[in-house]
Design a protein around this nucleic acid. Structure first.
Length: 682
DNA sequence: CGGTTACCAGTTTTT
DNA sequence: CTGGTAACCG
């Protein structure tokens, strides 16, 4: 009990103790959000005596779930059974495993990822871009609109077309017993919505529900939560409206802004004490975010006073920018700062290239966070397809991916032919090929391929038996039979690919060791819901997009590309307030040092563009040359100066005029622009 | 079938 | 300038 409360401040403690009814915890950046949520869970179990099986804690990412679980387990007394703490999607998966039969479907379904989804869509439609259709279908599902409704409400022919594709896509999923990510949530909702008894029963089972990062929830998630707490309304959500940066992905900031309207009698607790950043950094972050109109309003209060001023660095172009940043980083490293305490952030990934060049030239090792995810790499997806076919030979989709890997002399046309004939015969491709005689097969494929196909079929069947009877031998047998690594030889980035394959093999072996009873199918569904968890440590600095930095913190932080058009990024669908929140998220990652940089021109999309400084620099209360590196003559806002005629004044702004600095000076209410050479520092 | 070249579009990204 | 895909020959 004391263990839980000892290190909490008053607001955190209030949040922990308020257990009944809706509770909104507005947790500012660095305010001890995870500590509060995990303490609350421990309090529920240990002090209130709620059985752990009656709690449900949901997060967005596996990483957050894992971190929270670890921290909660450290607080909870040993004798309680671990509470359910997982991602929204994992919860959906578990729920569907138990209840999907109520929709007339089998619980042997397979979860497909967005890549699979796009491939299916591409097959269905040739003309419209699949990315667009994928996101439209996702939008429909998240608004609980089925294909029939989508068609009915579509006015433009293009949308009718999309609705039609949506219908075919759904039929395809149903035929192959597949579910996509959105289905995990919308089918769960559907079950709860259509079965009152199940809804009541489920709500009564989870009497205390907590949601992390509530500002990232969408409409469907809100409605799902309303079902889940329909019998008790014991819903505690934690989030920060100022850190809502996923609007473009369907997150509704309104969910957090209007939480008390969705759940009447809400208690609101604000966590405004920031334990991460210095006062100097928080002043800048607060000043920026205050320019947003739609926010609940809170101000971060520093617990670390003082701190170095936020620096603004300007450069002529991206190569000078990265050179300057790299030089600063080099200096930090030379002064004994550990590499993993340094990070560089940017709004768009395209900015990483010049940065990487600069870092390489300065000999600074870096780790790029984000980029292509492990499970999305082609060679890893191939392996997954092998595993999927082995668990389910009827999976035509995965079969097509690997049937010619390694090459078996089958081209697009042959595969198409096989598929169509199989369809006509009412069989899956695997089954079809298996039941055909050699002569029949020869009429569909090259003679040379027939033998290859036969052995492919045989190996798959044998591997299926091995998976069932001796799963610990499975990986070795898979590699032995299909020579996966060998076929990667000679390809570009051969070493990387092979090491990814080895990594996958290792992951599989670990999984088998840890879950000896699990089947291949369970392994597959688990990894589909998993993102990159690699948090490689080592002596290198981090570079990543602002989005990827959410939830992280760094002692020394650089934010590059502070220009109009890059941050804020301007384009269709861009939202200035969300861009400002991105700036806020970026700034609040810094613990003791923050440096912003901007350039006069940047090479982007094949052309050089002249750029203006980001308005966010001004909004943050910084001005050009707030503190310019490498120039000891620079003035910054707040400096006292003396002019021969006007006397003493205070600097309010600094800008550049040719090679000189122009200062905006306030001489007792009289403001004037004056070149720096005409004044002296006091 | 499989490798080549032409062409196009081009934020942010988890599950 | 990139990277990814579609169309095109050997």
């Amino acid at each position: 009990m004391n263990k839980i409360f000892d290190s909490l401040n008053d607001a955190q403690r209030t949040a922990v103790e308020q257990i009944d009814g809706p509770l909104l915890i507005l947790a500012g950046a660095g305010s001890g959000k995870t500590k509060t949520i995990t303490s609350r869970l421990a309090y529920l179990l240990d002090s209130v005596g709620v059985p752990s099986s009656q709690t449900l804690t949901l997060t967005f990412t596996n990483k957050a779930a894992k971190e929270m679980r670890e921290r909660a387990m450290g607080l909870i007394s040993q004798n309680s059974y671990p509470p359910l703490l997982c991602t929204f999607h994992k919860f959906g998966l578990l729920f569907l495993k138990f209840h999907i039969h109520l929709l007339g479907r089998s619980n042997t379904f397979v979860v497909i990822d967005s890549d699979d989804k796009k491939k299916i869509l591409k097959k269905i439609n040739a003309d419209l871009p699949t990315a667009l259709i994928a996101s439209e279908i996702s939008r429909y599902k998240n608004s609980l609109i089925d294909p029939t409704e989508a068609y009915a409400q579509a006015e433009l022919t293009n949308y009718k077309h999309i609705a039609k594709i949506y219908e075919e896509y759904q039929a395809y999923l149903l035929d192959n017993n597949l579910v996509d990510f959105d289905d995990l949530l919308c089918l769960t909702y559907k079950l709860l919505d259509e079965n009152n008894e199940l809804c009541t029963q489920t709500s009564e089972k989870y009497r205390y529900i907590m949601i992390d990062e509530y500002q990232d929830t969408n409409e469907l998630q809100l409605r799902l939560l309303q079902k889940l707490c329909s019998t008790h309304n014991n819903l505690c959500v934690v989030g920060d409206d100022d850190q809502s940066i996923y609007g473009w992905r369907g997150a509704h900031v309104r969910n957090i802004l209007e939480f008390d309207q969705d759940f009447p009698n809400t208690t609101i607790v604000k966590l405004e004490h920031n334990y991460r950043s210095t006062q100097a950094i928080l002043t800048v972050a607060n000043s920026l975010i205050e320019h947003n109109r739609s926010r609940l309003g809170k101000t971060l209060i520093a617990t670390k006073t003082g701190g170095e001023e936020v620096k603004v660095l300007s450069a002529h172009d991206e190569s000078e920018e990265s050179q300057k940043v790299a030089k600063e980083i080099r200096r930090l490293l030379d002064s004994g700062v550990r590499a993993n305490e340094i990070a560089v952030l940017y709004r768009i990934n395209a900015l990483s290239r010049s940065l990487e060049e600069g870092l390489n030239r300065a000999g600074v090792a870096y780790k790029l966070v984000g980029g292509l995810r492990f499970y999305d790499r082609a060679e890893v997806k191939d392996l997954i397809s092998y595993l999927r076919v082995i668990t389910n030979v009827h999976d035509n989709f995965s079969l097509k991916r690997i049937i010619n890997k390694p090459k078996r002399g089958l081209g697009k046309a042959t595969i198409e032919k096989l598929e169509l004939s199989a369809m006509a015969a009412g069989k899956s491709m695997f089954e079809f090929i298996d039941t055909l005689s050699d002569t029949e097969l020869e009429s569909l494929a090259r003679k040379k391929s027939v033998g290859e196909l036969r052995s492919f079929i045989r190996e798959i069947i044998e591997l299926r038996d091995i998976a069932e009877e001796a799963i610990y031998q499975f990986i070795d047998q898979l590699e032995k039979r299909f020579k996966i690594k060998e076929t990667l030889k000679g390809l570009p980035d051969e070493a990387d690919k092979i090491s990814n394959v080895d990594e996958f093999y290792g992951l599989f072996r670990d999984y088998v060791k840890q879950n000896p009873e699990a089947s291949l199918a369970e392994f597959l569904n688990d990894i589909t819901l998993q993102s990159d968890q690699d948090q490689v440590e080592g002596e290198s600095i981090y570079i990543m997009s602002i989005h990827a930095s959410k939830g992280l913190e760094f002692e020394h932080l650089f934010v590059i590309g502070m220009e109009e058009g890059f941050l804020p990024l301007i384009g269709d669908g861009s939202d200035l307030e969300e861009e400002r929140r991105l700036g806020y998220v970026a700034f609040t990652r810094a613990k003791s040092n923050l440096t912003l940089s901007s350039v006069n021109s940047r090479f982007y999309k094949g052309r050089r563009t002249e750029l203006q400084k980001s308005r966010f620099i001004n909004e943050a209360g910084l001005c050009e040359g707030s503190l310019i590196l490498e120039k000891n003559t620079a003035y910054k806002k707040g400096d006292l100066v003396r002019h021969k005629i006007f006397g003493a004044g205070r600097v309010e702004g600094v800008s550049k005029s040719g090679r000189e600095f122009k200062l905006l000076i306030n001489f007792g209410g009289n403001k004037r622009d004056i070149l720096a050479s005409f004044v002296e520092k006091l």
